[in-house]
């Protein structure tokens, strides 16, 4: 196919391969997905200038991605990966996100971002509030207040080692290490 549009320059592709856990094919597929979200904003060829870091899709468009649509944490995930915490993502950030959620990414970095996702108020600790927010999202608000408090306080009690009533990153890491489910569920297949 001679007249095929060059989506990325060779250099860009090499950069992406070096900076993410994705293969060449994955990157191209993700670009297609990104473009399909808003064909009028995203150009077909990403080679020009710095399209990849300036063209921004709003949060409400991103969450329409089929792989993300049903995820209850979708908004929070986008916020974590966007530079300004608004949830609007450029292609670079979008690619970053899917790289972390790919099967190739090691545990450490997944735990790092998981912590960020669950830390809703950005205070570097997962407190009672954060836990309750996560629980509310998970159960679609079906637990009553008493049950919710019970579960939150129990969860914090389980993991809180230094007795400050909230989970630091190390405590979170410690808990996640013992939850074998985490690694098998914390990924999105593209």
């Amino acid at each position: 196919m001679g007249n095929k549009v060059v989506v990325f320059s060779e250099e860009q592709l090499q950069d992406y391969q070096d900076c993410t856990f994705l293969t060449r094919k994955d990157i191209l597929r993700i670009q297609k997905k990104f473009r399909n979200l808003a064909t009028d904003i995203v150009p077909k060829s990403m080679t020009a200038g710095n399209v990849t870091s300036t063209v921004m899709l709003p949060l409400d468009t991103i969450v329409k991605l089929p792989e993300l649509r049903e995820n209850p944490f979708k908004r929070r995930i986008c916020e974590v990966f966007s530079k300004d915490n608004t949830g609007n993502l450029t292609f670079d950030e979008f690619l970053d996100m899917l790289s972390i959620f790919s099967e190739e990414a090691p545990r450490d970095i997944k735990v790092f971002y998981a912590f960020k996702i669950y830390d809703f108020d950005n205070d570097n600790h997962i407190g009672n509030e954060d836990m309750c927010t996560a629980l509310k999202i998970l159960t679609v608000n079906e637990l009553n207040a008493e049950e919710m408090n019970q579960v939150c306080s129990k969860a914090i009690e389980e993991a809180d080692v230094d007795g400050d009533g909230k989970l630091s990153y190390m405590e979170f890491n410690h808990v996640i290490l013992r939850s074998p489910e985490f690694f098998s569920t914390f990924h999105i297949r593209i």
Partner: peptide
């Protein structure tokens, strides 16, 4: 991990792979 029953329920409960309504 049974000491962390509730924690893994909250943090590991959701299956990020699910994409069907």
């Amino acid at each position: 991990g049974q000491y962390y029953k509730y924690c893994s329920m909250v943090f590991g409960g959701w299956d990020f792979c699910i994409s069907n309504e």
